[in-house]
Design a protein around this nucleic acid. Structure first.
Lengths: 379, 379
DNA sequence: ACTGTTAATTTTATTTGGTGAACAATATAA
DNA sequence: TTATATTGTTCACCAAATAAAATTAACAGT
């Protein structure tokens, strides 16, 4: 725990990188006297360390940076099987990582996570500081307090708390978070969207279509934590409702029924087409009408959903994480075009759509980032 | 201007109504000593006043309430012609009001507002305190700094600043705000949604379809201030795109082209039907297929838009302000039903849809509320 | 009428987080 | 060497909040 002044210093250094005391004074608006005391405290506690000198006229300034090895954080992703567990430093860099078998049974799961973390910490040795916290990305609904998992379909969990037992046996704070929320917060803190105060992220992965929003620099959860449920927004309407298979959620025309990898695979299979993104895009490029139609439908629906999102939310940026063949093929092109034709044209329009690669370790680093953010900013 | 401690006291008393010092201590978490000093300062400045005693065992407690007549605020709505101007007290109660001719020319407009406010202040006399600020609701885009109006179609304004001249001649802070934003903030502060931290509001009025969101207790403007543009979300798709007339924004299938009063009137006229909501709903009730179709289309599209909003935002409540015949007729019924069938069913679903009457003075009281909020909470 | 009890509010001395101004440190430029 | 520029520290002081003690204003029982 730090004081509010110390948190201000940590926040600035974390977002801007190494800076001198004088720069900190200018940025934070605090006085030189206060800054002198604050930085001394943080240096004493080994969270900060002095870096290189910057010479100019007058006394050279000493850059202060986060001491990367002063603490480390563990990130766990239950998103896939095998699951991933890794150790990051204070700057979000991965120190060590390993895979482990995903167990549905909470007790086994807790054991696996505990053992995994202990192994990684031992393995890292001197390269990592003491463990400062743990974050766990869970595919499912997680309570606002980041302890209880209300429900996870893949894990077959209902009101499971793996946080309390883990905190007890590891002796550090542990946080559970929805996987998409963990990912977006990680990218916001350390990754591609570093410090962008307003954006949305959509992830098209094996587990379905995930989505999360950063509004005003903070995660927007929604009243019941449902603000990321883009996969069940209606995009095939009204004509598609009859031809289209019902969604697992009970309604018809959901984005999930046409744009998810599962849906695309199933549609391709039905037509006797190959089911991998690469092969399907190749067939479409070669003129196969069925392949073209499937990709057109999927990309168009996703574009429609993004358009709804942009029109209602007005984020500064939307990032879609997507497999490379889709990004550069029909799917991506139709997605972009459909979005553009369904957003109100504005002269000063500066919103950007970014299609990017899905990072395998993103979920776990995001999870570690939750613990890091709590440590650095207390939020 | 007050200190941060004083703002905390004002915020609690404004949301909870009269409370004793001891209650304030419990609620704010400040100490008795601090509270004693803070309340004394506010009593000295006449912002608070002592109300009735509450007897129990021991020394009776003295309720402290806002001194309604210590300041007053002016609210101006340029939403309709004639425009409305009114005076409210610290509790949001209307003290006096009048209408004035809406002039497009900024100079005339400023003169009219200044004269109107001076007349109302004179007319109110002892019933109102000195003027503490002015809020102006403008149909159009207003900058985040609440001074410059980028663009208003109805007023034919482009980069007009009526705030600076008004501040100069009235000598109090003046704030311009988009009309829907003013309305929702007013309802949030004093009205039907008092203190609800998460909700959206849609207004179906003569000027088109307005929309605004309160997220986390604050107005959500969006990156470019476009978060309220629900009227250009696509709801008729894909089959309606060809049959449907293009929207004034340039694209097709916008909510505005089927659910706005203007669109409904125009469709009714085309079919030789009466154009008032009351008459149209009556025809539909009596079985007229055209009237039914028009109202079904309009209500269904609105329901679709609300469903998109709920699915992506997850607000705790959506309020639609609508004429009574529509609320109780086909429009309202179809709106509600369409919304429900296009939202992912959830067991713990507690989100509510409220259809309510449009208040004529809502825009202007909302505008006054902007100035009040700035005065009371400095935000 | 007096006395004790309870609870609200005020007073007093102290802590905490911050400030401005003077000063010490450490470089470059002449 | 000396002047100049700039960084960072020290010191005396202030504002906001606190804990604990004192004061006030009621009621209840003798």
């Amino acid at each position: 725990m730090f004081t509010s002044g110390q948190y201000r210093v940590l926040r600035t250094i974390s977002t801007l990188g190494p800076v001198s005391r004088t720069q900190l004074v200018e940025i934070t608006g605090l006085s030189k006297a206060t800054m002198s005391a604050l930085t001394r405290e943080l240096l004493d506690r080994n969270i900060l360390c002095e870096r290189e000198l910057v010479f100019g006229q007058g006394r050279p300034s000493i850059l202060l940076g986060l001491n990367a090895v002063s603490v480390c954080f563990a990130g766990v992703s239950m998103q896939s099987d095998p699951s991933i567990i890794l150790l990051t430093d204070l700057l979000g860099e991965i120190i060590a990582h390993k895979e482990f078998v995903r167990a549905s049974d909470p007790e086994t799961c807790i054991e696996n996570i505990e053992r995994g973390i202990r192994e990684l910490v031992a393995q890292a040795g001197d390269r990592a500081g003491p463990l400062g916290g743990v974050g766990i990305a869970i595919p499912g609904f997680v309570a606002r307090d980041r302890r209880l998992c209300y429900r996870s379909v893949v894990l077959e969990w209902r009101n499971v708390d793996i946080v309390t037992p883990l905190e007890k046996c590891l002796g550090v704070p542990v946080f559970a978070e929805n996987d998409a929320n963990a990912l977006i917060q990680g990218e916001h803190l350390f990754g591609i969207m570093r410090d962008c105060p307003d954006f949305s992220m959509i992830i098209v992965g094996d587990g379905g279509i995930g989505c999360a929003h950063i509004v005003d620099g903070k995660l927007h959860r929604g009243f019941q934590g449902g603000a990321g449920e883009i996969s069940h927004t209606t995009v095939v309407w009204p004509d598609g409702r009859e031809t289209n298979r019902p969604c697992s959620c009970g309604k018809r025309g959901c984005l999930d029924t046409v744009s998810s990898l599962r849906a695309i695979r199933s549609m391709a299979q039905q037509k006797g087409l190959p089911t991998t993104p690469l092969e399907l895009e190749r067939q479409a490029r070669e003129g196969n009408a069925d392949a073209l139609h499937i990709l057109h439908t999927a990309g168009g629906a996703m574009g429609m959903a993004v358009a709804q999102l942009v029109q209602l939310f007005d984020p500064s940026q939307v990032v879609v994480l997507l497999d490379q063949p889709f990004r550069e093929g029909v799917f991506g092109a139709v997605l972009r075009q459909t979005m553009e034709t369904h957003i109100m044209p504005r002269p000063d329009w500066e919103m950007t759509l970014d299609l990017r690669e899905t990072l395998g370790t993103g979920w776990a680093t995001g999870a570690a980032g939750i613990a890091t953010r709590q440590f650095l900013f207390s939020e």
